[in-house]
Lab assay of single mutants.
Amino acid sequence: MSGNGNAAATAEENSPKMRVIRVGTRKSQLARIQTDSVVATLKASYPGLQFEIIAMSTTGDKILDTALSKIGEKSLFTKELEHALEKNEVDLVVHSLKDLPTVLPPGFTIGAICKRENPHDAVVFHPKFVGKTLETLPEKSVVGTSSLRRAAQLQRKFPHLEFRSIRGNLNTRLRKLDEQQEFSAIILATAGLQRMGWHNRVGQILHPEECMYAVGQGALGVEVRAKDQDILDLVGVLHDPETLLRCIAERAFLRHLEGGCSVPVAVHTAMKDGQLYLTGGVWSLDGSDSIQETMQATIHVPAQHEDGPEDDPQLVGITARNIPRGPQLAAQNLGISLANLLLSKGAKNILDVARQLNDAH
Rank of each mutant, 00 (worst) to 15 (best):
D61H: 02
Q153K: 04
E52A: 14
A266G: 04
E179S: 11
N322A: 00
D233V: 07
A339R: 04
I350E: 00
Y277N: 09
G131S: 11
H207L: 11
T190M: 03
V38N: 04
D273F: 00
S147R: 04
L97E: 04
I186A: 11
L193Q: 06
L238S: 04
I231K: 05
L42Q: 00
G111I: 00
S96M: 05
L338M: 12
E162P: 00
L276Q: 05
R156I: 14
K115G: 13
T145H: 04
T319W: 01
K345D: 05
A249W: 03
K128A: 12
L285G: 15
E310L: 10
R195K: 03
L245A: 14
E86S: 12
W283A: 04
L134W: 06
N88T: 13
I299D: 11
V282S: 05
L49N: 03
A347V: 03
T172D: 02
Q153S: 08
T78F: 00
N322Y: 08
V353F: 02
L49Y: 15
T319A: 09
K227C: 01
T133S: 09
V94H: 07
T172Y: 09
P105G: 12
P309K: 14
H95E: 03
A331P: 02
L177R: 04
E86K: 14
I54T: 09
G317P: 11
F125I: 13
D289C: 04
V224T: 15
E135W: 11
R167G: 10
L278P: 08
F51H: 09
G216K: 00
L170M: 14
T58P: 02
G216V: 00
Q194V: 14
P106I: 09
V301G: 12
V301R: 10
K98A: 04
E250K: 04
P101H: 12
F125W: 12
K345Q: 05
E117W: 12
K272Y: 02
I53Y: 13
Q328A: 06
L343P: 04
E162W: 03
E306Q: 13
A189F: 03
E52G: 12
D311R: 10
R255G: 14
T59N: 05
V90N: 04
D311G: 14
Q296V: 12
I231A: 15
L338Q: 04
Q153A: 02
S337R: 14
I336A: 08
S288G: 13
E117Y: 11
R321W: 02
M56Y: 02
T319N: 06
S69P: 13
L206R: 03
H305G: 14
A330H: 03
R149D: 04
L174Y: 09
P159F: 07
M56P: 05
I54M: 08
K79L: 08
W198A: 13
A330I: 00
R325T: 09
K70C: 08
E86M: 10
I248F: 11
R251C: 05
T41Y: 10
E210Q: 05
T133Y: 08
R325P: 14
A151Y: 09
T78I: 14
L234N: 14
L137V: 11
E86I: 13
L285K: 10
G60R: 05
K132Y: 11
G280F: 02
V143S: 03
Y277K: 05
K227H: 05
P208V: 06
A189I: 01
V130P: 12
G107I: 01
A226K: 15
I291Q: 13
R149V: 02
R149N: 01
D359M: 02
F158I: 12
L315M: 09
L245G: 04
R246I: 06
I248G: 00
L334S: 06
A297K: 01
C211T: 06
T269R: 00
G203W: 14
L245K: 04
G236T: 10
E80I: 09
